[in-house]
């Protein structure tokens, strides 16, 4: 029976800093996206090449979706870097998680009969990744709201002294910001971690053929979860920057 760890496994320590398999995967994802971005920027043409075309499809698709929520092309272009980067990072790390070798190639700690530690692990199956993304998202959403509405107007959403009901609603709003972080991070973590577990279990019980439908399901789930994260961010931005 394979051992399933909720926390990402530590591979090595670098001056006391733990380097986990999920962190290594994150670096690989960042490396892939940086490489593609630099490649695109060097060969950007009016008549696009295939890689530029792929990026343009993603950008145009996202701008279309965001325009539906934010109401204008200008706002969509303003928040595209945050939303687009969230989507690309999550979708690439989710899809990389089901690549052959990820989760199956690793080292045995303490000899051949020791604990198996995979070298790579889907980034979003580590709560540190999803928690970091959720925290950044909520902080940036509030920064955007302050930038658009001003500090006083924005803080008056949370701390209102117009009456007891408004005060109570404000406190609830404030708490909901933390709830957002929790729901954001645990939704993504739960889905991806559950998918990993599902793949490990099906691979263990019926290794030949049985995991294939689940792999296809994970491709779909990986995409949907990235889209949900990105679209929820857009919705939160649109709510936060709206004038009440």
């Amino acid at each position: 029976m394979p051992h399933i760890e909720i926390a990402a496994e530590k591979l090595v320590s670098f001056f006391g800093f733990p380097i986990t398999n999920a962190l290594l995967t994150s670096w690989i994802v960042v490396g892939i996206l940086v490489f593609l971005a630099v490649l695109v920027s060097r060969h950007i043409r009016l008549i696009p090449a295939p890689i530029q075309n792929m990026f343009e499809i993603v950008v145009e698709g996202f701008l279309g979706l965001m325009e539906g929520v934010l109401g204008s092309r200008k706002n969509s272009e303003k928040y595209l870097p945050l939303v687009g980067t969230l989507f690309l990072f999550i979708v690439i790390s989710n899809w990389l998680g089901i690549f052959p070798g990820v989760g199956s190639i690793g080292i045995f700690e303490g000899g051949a009969h020791g604990k198996f530690v995979p070298l790579l692990r889907s980034a979003a199956s580590d709560i540190n990744v999803t928690l970091a993304l959720a925290t950044i998202t909520v902080i940036l959403v509030n920064v955007s709201a302050i930038h658009t509405l001003g500090v006083g107007t924005h803080l008056s959403k949370y701390f209102s002294f117009k009456g007891p009901i408004e005060f109570f609603v404000g406190i609830l709003e404030f708490i909901s910001e933390f709830a957002k972080i929790i729901s954001f991070s645990f939704r993504l973590f739960g889905n991806i971690f559950a998918g990993e577990v599902l793949l490990v279990i099906t691979g263990f019980l019926a290794p030949y053929g049985a995991p294939v439908p689940f792999l296809m399901l994970e491709v779909f789930v990986g995409f949907i979860q990235a889209l949900v994260f990105a679209m929820l961010t857009t919705v939160f931005i649109s709510i936060a920057v709206a004038h009440h």
Binding site: A37, V40, S41, E56, V59, G84, T85, L88
Partner: peptide
């Protein structure tokens, strides 16, 4: 990096 090399140029 994505903003500098991908989103803005695109």
């Amino acid at each position: 990096v994505l903003k500098r090399f991908a989103y803005v140029p695109i």
